[in-house]
């Protein structure tokens, strides 16, 4: 879709991102770089601050401090918190995508599958019904959803199908950066495995940059190049996924890894 990618710059550069809820800490002083085509997993237990961080990075939540600079296609690194609401919303429906854990948060349940996939296209000006529909069919095939159900409402779909539909709806405009919040949470194990396969295939094929939040180390192992382990709002360890999982340095990471092995 977009041929040339900047490879001499990170696509997202977070510096000292911090967010507190009253006295409750959300996340503290998070800094990292994300490079084009890279998949970064943020791992931790519930309450570790990983979802707060993801919401800050995707500008759905304003942090108290820190910056997150995104490399836009035409004007280089720009702090997303300094952008106007209009610019942020534009990014959100073009360059970015957000896959929610609960498909209800990411789909319009009272609008057909085809319109769900087509909405972002229409939002950026697509005005040919046949084309929009063809792209919706194409994307339903890509995420392996029965295309004969294009006019059905998502609420008649299974959980796994809804999640596939949500992914199609997000990727249809060719985003470069995808945020995912426990995309396989709440699904049966067999359904999870097939969905992870699909995500891995899409990420590689489309060279997406991804930030994925998960509490499941197996998901991180399968998808992520690099990972950050969070606890009490702070990053306790980060590095290449295999390195962190095979040779955890921090006591907490060791505990996490060993508890998975035992299970």
């Amino acid at each position: 879709m977009n041929g040339s990618r900047e490879t001499d710059s990170p696509i997202l550069l977070a510096e000292a991102v911090s967010k507190a809820y009253g006295e409750q800490l959300g996340c503290v002083d998070i800094s990292f770089e994300l490079w084009p085509g890279e998949v970064l997993a943020i791992v931790g237990e519930s309450g570790s601050g990983k979802t707060t961080l993801l919401n800050c990075l995707s500008a759905q939540l304003m942090p108290d401090r820190g910056s997150a600079r995104y490399h836009r296609r035409n004007d280089g690194l720009r702090d997303i918190y300094a952008m106007s609401e209009a610019e942020r919303r534009f990014l959100m429906r073009t360059d970015w995508a957000f896959v929610h854990q609960n498909p209800r948060d990411g789909l319009r349940m009272n609008v057909s599958a085809g319109a769900n996939v087509g909405e972002r296209l229409m939002a950026v000006g697509a005005r040919h019904y046949g084309d929009i529909r063809a792209r919706a069919v194409d994307w339903m095939e890509k995420v392996e959803v029965d295309t004969s159900r294009i006019d059905h409402f998502p609420r008649t779909f299974s959980g796994g199908m809804q999640q596939r539909l949500q992914i199609a709806r997000n990727l249809v405009t060719g985003p470069r950066l995808v945020f995912m919040d426990e995309p396989t949470g709440g699904l049966d194990v067999s359904v999870q495995a097939r969905l992870l396969d699909l995500i891995r295939g899409l990420v590689t094929r489309l060279q997406l940059s991804v930030i994925i939040v998960t509490h499941d180390l197996a998901v991180a192992r399968l998808l992520a190049h690099r990972m950050m382990v969070m606890r009490d709002g702070r990053v306790v360890e980060q590095g290449l996924t295999d390195q962190v999982l095979d040779d955890p340095q921090h006591a907490y990471t060791q505990l996490l890894v060993s508890s998975v092995l035992q299970a």
Partner: peptide, 22 residues
């Protein structure tokens, strides 16, 4: 009001799309 201000009119065409598909 925000949708008008930011010219976010995609939803309007979603409705027309739904009409045609149905």
């Amino acid at each position: 009001r925000t949708m008008h201000a930011l010219e976010e009119y995609g939803l309007m065409h979603v409705k027309l799309y739904e009409d045609i598909s149905r």
